[in-house]
Design a protein around this nucleic acid. Structure first.
Lengths: 107, 107
DNA sequence: GGAATACTTAAGCATGTGCTTAACAATTCA
DNA sequence: TGAATTGTTAAGCACATGCTTAAGTATTCC
């Protein structure tokens, strides 16, 4: 998932898909890149679950999957809040003289 | 930033750093990987701004930078809400007969 | 049917990434 | 001082990644 987000072209494709579904060649138009190149990026995006595609007739329609984006978001949020929570505890420990609830070093 | 998050070892390092700062060799301990390998991952993490390091004496102390994590989170959040907003408009359009506020196709 | 459209597949190539080992600092401490 | 600890640098290697071109395969439209 983060692997899929790591490439600027793929992020640009995601940004475009926020405005609505698009065909492969519509997605390719803004880029100075061959169609197969774009298709390969789409495969990575689809493999990560960030994008869903459906072929109707000869045109493949691509759309973003918000739930998967939210998943990545949730991962980051969990880490960040854990880190911040720790910093908050540290801060309040430094501010007051009250003994903290639990620590191992200060027996 | 997403590039830095794309590697599982680096994500594991981040998870560890949520619990507090750690030295390079402390970070390396859980992994079946040489020290230089870990150092290289730390360089990527520091380059992305996700981790801050400071060398005191002969030990380098590494800590997570929540603000940068929040930045990545914000990027994802912006995309997701844009995509969801569009889907909500679509849904309410399908549910009611009221004309939507703005669209280009239905002049 | 036959030409145009919209992709798809396959192959190949240059560069990037993740890792290793080996050798080299720099710091601490007996 | 000199040995142990902690990290750094450099080189090299295997494999992954991002791209290309060339040649297919469906679909649609005339």
């Amino acid at each position: 998932m983060f692997q899929a987000l790591a490439d600027p072209t793929r992020r640009a494709i995601l940004i475009r898909l926020c405005e609505g579904p698009a065909s492969v060649s519509e997605l390719a138009r803004p880029f100075a890149m061959s169609l197969p190149g774009i298709v390969q990026h789409l495969q990575v995006l689809e493999g990560s679950g960030l994008v869903r595609t459906e072929k109707i007739g000869r045109v493949r329609s691509c759309s973003i999957v918000p739930a998967t984006v939210r998943l990545a978001e949730g991962w980051l949020s969990a880490r960040r809040t854990a880190a911040e929570r720790r910093l908050d505890r540290l801060e309040s420990f430094l501010d007051s003289d009250d003994p903290p609830t639990t620590t191992r070093s200060t027996s």
